[in-house]
Amino acid sequence: MMGEAMARDTSKEAVTPPPAAGMGDAALLKELVAHLRDNRTELREEWARRISDADLLTAMTPDEIFSEATAVYDNYVDALETGSVEALQAYARDLSERIIPRGVETHEVLGIVLLLRDVLARSLFEKYRADPDLLNRILDAYEPAANRIAVTVGVSFVQERERVIRQQQEAIRELSTPVLQVRERLLILPIIGVLDAQRARQLTEQLLQAIRANRAKVVVIDITGVPDIDSAVANHMVQLVKASRLMGASVIITGLSSDIARTLVTLGVDLTSMRTVGDLQGGIEEAERQLGYALPALEDLDDELD
């Protein structure tokens, strides 16, 4: 009763004539919005019930479903009334952001919006069934608006989901190529997972920046976690080593299994620029030796001078 009193209390409402044959779409929408507001409590409950009957939003508690359903319902009716989906869109994005981490799927979101559309349509049908002509015109006004709302919510959810996925991919990429400084002038780069061209490029750029930022002199790259190395990956590694050298840093590769080593030799990859040591521990020890200013070119120089 409260809802009815409030809805009828506006001055605009007061001058609206009762539904009649000559009524325009705007007046029809106003009429049906008033109906949906008047019956808010029971329609909302009906909708929440049908959501759980359909086994949708199982990741959420009944209380959560009810409270979100209330907000969606009110936004939905507002959108019908104003014809603007902006507020609903913002809410849908916000809702998506909250429920995506809970594992709510696209089909569930589309499912609940379509259920609401059906619950409301059915209620309109019940109310106007006695006057088929008016019912038709009410539904003509309702359906395009309802479909537009359904599309808006669905698209908002999917966009949000895509954004989250992109963000996660970015985070995984960053995580999977951490450049660690273990001691002054020494960086360790453990590579885990498959090394494709894009990742190899990113890794190289990241390492080169880190060499400058940390003034690194030796880099130990541990590839124990790389499952497979083909000639393309091996060439990326060779480029990584050469680019590091141009910046004055030497690279030690560790964790090269004998299987992979054999593969590389078979593939004819030129490994002469790479210094390899069995395991990470050995690599760090070798790096520490190098940090005592070992100079490979020295022997030649001495020969020349003598």
Binding site: K242, S244, L246
Partner: peptide, 21 residues
């Protein structure tokens, strides 16, 4: 860093020349 990356892509690695940071 960017220059080192581009040089290696281009296939120029200053073989036999000393480098420092």
């Amino acid at each position: 860093p960017e220059v080192a990356f581009a040089l290696v892509q281009l296939g120029l690695t200053l073989e036999g020349v000393n480098t420092a940071l």
